[in-house]
């Protein structure tokens, strides 16, 4: 092993440790590693910032703008809205949502696709009085699986496609990933729909569940006693009955 190799392995090892540790955000860690690599003479001066002109960087940025456009135009909701209704059984609901989620992630950013479908899924859970935990993880996994279908579906595919172009002359094209991606995504969605959701360790039955997602999402809120309020002079516990009626719990009092 040469000195350069040894130093690089040490640097990349440290980079991984910092990335996994997560104390500093990954962009800062990576940029710091680049600076150190330059200072150690591992990256030549004319190549330090060459990465920023790389086609993969441009594609990732452009795909995000396009995702935003598809989202803002309402195009995605128009398509998604037509396919969804909340009266399905949980298995069919997961199957349909996962399919839509994978299809959307194939052509747009995964996070944007999930952001779009998550509220629809939460609403369906509320109507069906289901724990949203049962359907959200399948939805998220399906969005990740869907990204495998096209070049622009997920950043790793963009990286691999452009890497092939540089190393072997011909980059992968838009649908080169599709034959493998579609089958893997389809098998993955079938698993998630038929078996996967049963393995999620959350309460399943509506009986042991709060009646709506709102009860599940319990917020800590500070309420102010206005200067002209009727409750001034009352004891805090006198409010308990009203709190019970509204379904909230009084936790404490912060006095000035």
């Amino acid at each position: 092993m040469s000195t350069d190799q040894g130093t690089l392995f040490a640097l990349i090892g440290a980079l991984f440790v910092f990335l996994i540790w997560g104390r500093y955000r990954y962009d800062l860690v990576a940029f710091g590693a680049l600076l150190i690599a330059y200072l150690l003479g591992l990256v030549p001066t004319d190549e330090v910032f060459a990465g920023f002109g790389h086609p993969a960087v441009i594609i990732i940025a452009l795909v995000l703008i396009i995702s935003r456009g598809l989202y803002l135009s309402g195009a995605i909701e128009m398509m998604a809205g037509a396919l969804l209704n909340s009266a399905r059984s949980i298995r069919r609901h997961i199957g349909v949502m996962a399919g839509v989620s994978a299809a959307l992630s194939a052509v747009m950013n995964n996070v944007a696709a999930l952001a779009l479908l998550m509220p629809i899924d939460l609403q369906a859970s509320e109507k069906a009085q289901r724990n949203p935990g049962l359907t959200l993880m399948p939805l998220s996994f399906a969005s990740i699986l869907g990204g495998m279908i096209t070049l622009i579906g997920t950043p790793p595919n963009i990286v691999i496609a452009t890497f092939r172009g540089e190393a072997l002359g011909d980059p992968y094209t838009m649908f080169d990933f599709a034959p493998v991606g579609v089958v893997v995504a389809a098998v993955g969605i079938a698993y998630v729909t038929l078996i996967g959701w049963r393995l999620i360790p959350v309460e399943r039955t509506a009986a042991s569940m709060p009646s709506s997602i709102e009860d599940l999402e319990s917020y800590l809120v500070e309420l102010r006693v206005p200067s002209e309020a009727e409750v001034i002079g009352q004891k805090l516990r006198q409010l308990d009955s009203q709190a019970n009626e509204a379904g909230v719990q009084i936790l404490g009092l912060v006095q000035r």
Binding site: Y219, L223, V225, V231, L239, A246, V248, Q249, L251, R256
Partner: peptide, 29 residues
């Protein structure tokens, strides 16, 4: 729980969004 409420006190409650809104409305907080 025995403390007497005064103006500008903060009551810390826990609950869902609808419940909190209902409680704040009922007690005029």
């Amino acid at each position: 729980a025995r403390a007497t409420l005064q103006a500008e006190d903060r009551i810390v409650v826990e609950g869902g969004p609808d419940g909190i809104e209902a409680f704040a409305g009922a007690v005029a907080l």
